[in-house]
Amino acid sequence: MRTPVFIVASLIVAAVVYGLARLAGNDYVFFAGYVILQFVVLATAWNILGGYCGYVNFGSAAFFALGAYTTVALVKLPNLAAKYLPEGLASVIAAAVPPPIPVLMLAGGVIAGLVGLGTGYLTLRLRGVFFAIATLALAVVLQTLIVNWDYVGGSRGAYVIRPQVHALTGINYVEYLFVMMLLLSVTALTVARAIERSQLGYGFATIRDDELAAEASGVPTLRLKLVATTISGALMGMAGAPFPYYIGYLEPASAFGLAYAVNSIAMPMIGGTTSWVGPLLGALLLGTLQQIATVTISSAVSLLLVGLLLVAFVVIAPNGLLGLFDKLRQRIGAARASGGNARTGAA
C-alpha cells in the first residue's frame, strides 16, 4: 500500500471509529477514547526512536509535558501582554489567543522536537545507555523548571478553561478533542509507517543492529539519530498540547506523570517494536485494559498491571504480540507444509 492510499484508508477507519463512538451516545466514550488515542501517539512516537533505532527514552513524560505547558504558556499570553506591551499590541494578542488546537499541537511539537534534538545532540555520541539515563535526568530538570516557573502556574498548577462546545463545529468540546487526537494518531501512524518503508527506515534498522557497520556502509548514524529524536520528541509534544484543555487543571505532577513514561515503553514492547502495528496494538489493548481496571478496581492497580505485563513480556515474549503472531503463523505454515504427517520440522 502506498502512503497516500494508507492515509485515505486510515482516515476511513478513523471516521468509522468516530461514528461508532457517536453511536454510543455517551460522553464517557470520548473521555476514555481520548486517553487511549493519546497513548497510541505516545507509543508510536516512542517506537520511532526506541523500536526502530534501539535507543530507550525514559523521558516520554517530559516531552508530553513540554507540549502541554507550551499550550499553557500560549493561553496565558494575553495576561503577560496586558502587563508589558502597549494596549494595541496586547489586544491583537488577546484576539489571537487561544489559538485553535491544531496550532497548539504544532507549537508543542516544535518545542518538544527542539528539546529532543538538543538532548540527542548532547548525548548521542555516547553509548546508548547514557542517552537513556540522560532522558531520565531531562524529565526531572524540566519538571523542576516548571515547578519554579510562576508564569505557567508553578507547583500550584494552572487552570485552562475548557469551552462547553467547539465554536466552529458546535460539537461538545471533549468530542472535538477526541477527533483532534484521532487525526493526530493517523498522522503519527502514517509517519511511522512511511519511515519504516523508506531509506530512513533502513538507516534506523542498521543503527539498531550495528552502528559501526552502519557507518562503514555510509550511513550517517549521528544525523539519523538526531532525526529520530526530533521526530519522536515532536510527536510526543503534539500529543501533550491539547492535554490542558482535556484535564482543565494542569499541575506538574500530572503532566510529568510516570504513567506516561511507563506506558510509552510498555505499549510498544508488548505490541512489538519492529513495525508500526505493534505500538498501535499495544496502546489499544493496554489503554483499554487500564481504562477498565481504573473504573472497576483502581488506577494504582491498573498501573501495576502495566508494569507486570511489561516485565512479563520482555522476559517471556521479547518480540511482543507481533512476534508471537509470527511464531504462530510459522507453526501453522509448517504444520500445513508437512500435510498433517509427522510434524518433523514444526517446532
Binding site: 534501539g54 530507550v56 510516570l258 514492547m269 498501573l303 507486570l308 511489561l310 516485565v311
Partner: peptide, 23 residues
C-alpha cells in the same frame, strides 16, 4: 538483548515495586 529489553525490564521492576508499595 540487554540494551533495549534489559533497560525496559529494570524500568518495569522499578515501576512495579513503586506501585506495589503505594497499594
Amino acid at each position: 538483548q540487554e540494551a533495549l529489553r534489559g533497560l525496559a525490564f529494570f524500568f518495569g521492576l522499578l515501576f512495579v515495586t513503586e506501585v506495589t508499595l503505594i497499594l
